[in-house]
Nucleic acid binder design. Structure first.
Lengths: 242, 242
DNA sequence: TAAATAGTGTCTTTAAGACATTATCGC
DNA sequence: GCGATAATGTCTTAAAGACACTATTTA
């Protein structure tokens, strides 16, 4: 029996709207996503993203953040809208569009597995309800795509971090290894991070310098290495002839 | 009197959902957006994007495409979802989330202005209803951001085009001028276009070679010039230690 | 002092910037 | 042939790749 809704002008309206966070974190060198087991139809018992219905007076980002906090006890350090899945026949329960969010968590603050939620490696997922597999793929693509072009990794690193630590996080996300000295040079050249002057002591080997992000707000890298050289602004009214 | 809706389980639901295309085209060397005058509240008489309510059995992209065709008589060559504006208090008519789309049209197939719609230069817009100014900004940012990294310009160029023609379109979008020989080299290096072997005759000057896109489906440039060198795939289970 | 890890320096290779030169059309 | 426009070639500059070497810690 599908859910339906009608508005006060007599037209059929969406039966509800949901928001789902794609919660990603590097764990043991591999990128993981947080999944929960569904209690309710459709597909009770299946694994799915930890989403939920938006209520009136709640922005979709707030719904996503709330669901995330319910499952992990922490707020996301980074939350960005991915896409809306609005095919009216996507959800067997009725006309229920879903707004997906990418949510990134610092590995250091993760709770241990709770009974209701589990971390899964993104390259080895179970079968998922409601087309959530595709949504996770979109989230992973977004993270990988912005990794070197923005400071999106603020969400995945602690406030202060070392170069080797950043390198291991980048490697977990992208699935490749980087040459350490070139990694350092590129991350510094990005202009997104700066040395703090502090060092991380206590481990064997030479102590590593601690870095921090210049800004924790979303920002783009300087190293958007170059489209063709420009010749100054285009004159107004330049004709776009064939 | 705001619109409201309630679903068959008794919960408040969105009163409707709208889709709006941000229709962009280069015109006279400047990037323009298609706007319409609103007949209905809120803000009757104000300029706004040509959006409309989704109906049941219609995907949001179809709604955006339909609204675009109603106003211009053409389908978009390129349509991509931008974002969903879901703040429940954004629209004074009620809880009405909006899914925005970027829609690109080949300048050559544009209709002359119709009574209900007008092209406006994106850097010189009137005051807009419903926060549509911000949506247009997001659309322009997306187009500019992907211009050199994808074949998004398939939407703005005819099936066959010359290098100078492509250059003028790129200049209209980005607002800068490019050095012609470097422009050519970079566009060829992208791997997105290929020479057809044909030439455009009839104009004064040396005839220009005609190019086409290798694929008209969304694709990324090869020239995503490089993050640090990789050393092969990361080994499974590499620890992400501090 | 050996093992382990972090950080520096530098030579080579590739890509992009700048700009002079050559080619081919209409008139 | 001349003006206009398109296309090619090439030298310079900047960025990234590869990899040897030096530095500083713990055990």
């Amino acid at each position: 029996m599908p859910l339906t809704a009608r508005n006060s002008a007599g037209f059929e309206a969406p039966a509800g709207m949901t928001a789902v966070p794609v919660v990603l974190a590097p764990l043991g060198g591999r990128l993981h996503v947080l999944l929960v087991r569904r209690d309710d139809p459709p597909d009770p018992g299946a694994w799915a993203l930890p989403g939920g219905f938006m209520s009136r007076d709640e922005r979709p980002a707030e719904t996503a953040q709330r669901k995330l906090t319910e499952k992990t006890g922490v707020g996301a350090v980074y939350l960005e809208q991915l896409q809306t899945y609005g095919d009216p026949h996507r959800d067997p329960r009725g006309w229920i569009p879903t707004v997906a969010y990418l949510a990134l968590i610092d590995a250091a603050v993760l709770r241990a597995d709770e009974s209701q939620a589990r971390w899964w490696p993104v390259d080895d997922l179970p079968i998922l309800a409601l087309g959530h597999g595709g949504i996770i793929g979109d989230g992973v693509d977004r993270l990988r795509g912005k990794l070197w072009w923005s400071n999106i990794s603020v969400g995945l690193l602690p406030e202060r971090f070392t170069m080797p630590q950043a390198r291991r996080v980048f490697e977990a996300i992208s699935g490749v290894r980087y040459e350490p000295s070139n990694f350092r040079r590129e991350l510094e050249r990005s202009g997104l991070v700066q040395a703090t002057g502090l060092v991380a002591k206590g481990a064997p080997g030479r102590p590593a310098a601690l870095y921090e992000f210049v800004s924790r707000q979303p920002a783009w890298s300087l190293r958007r290495s170059r489209p063709p050289a420009t010749l100054g602004p285009a004159p107004r009214g330049l004709a776009a002839r064939p």
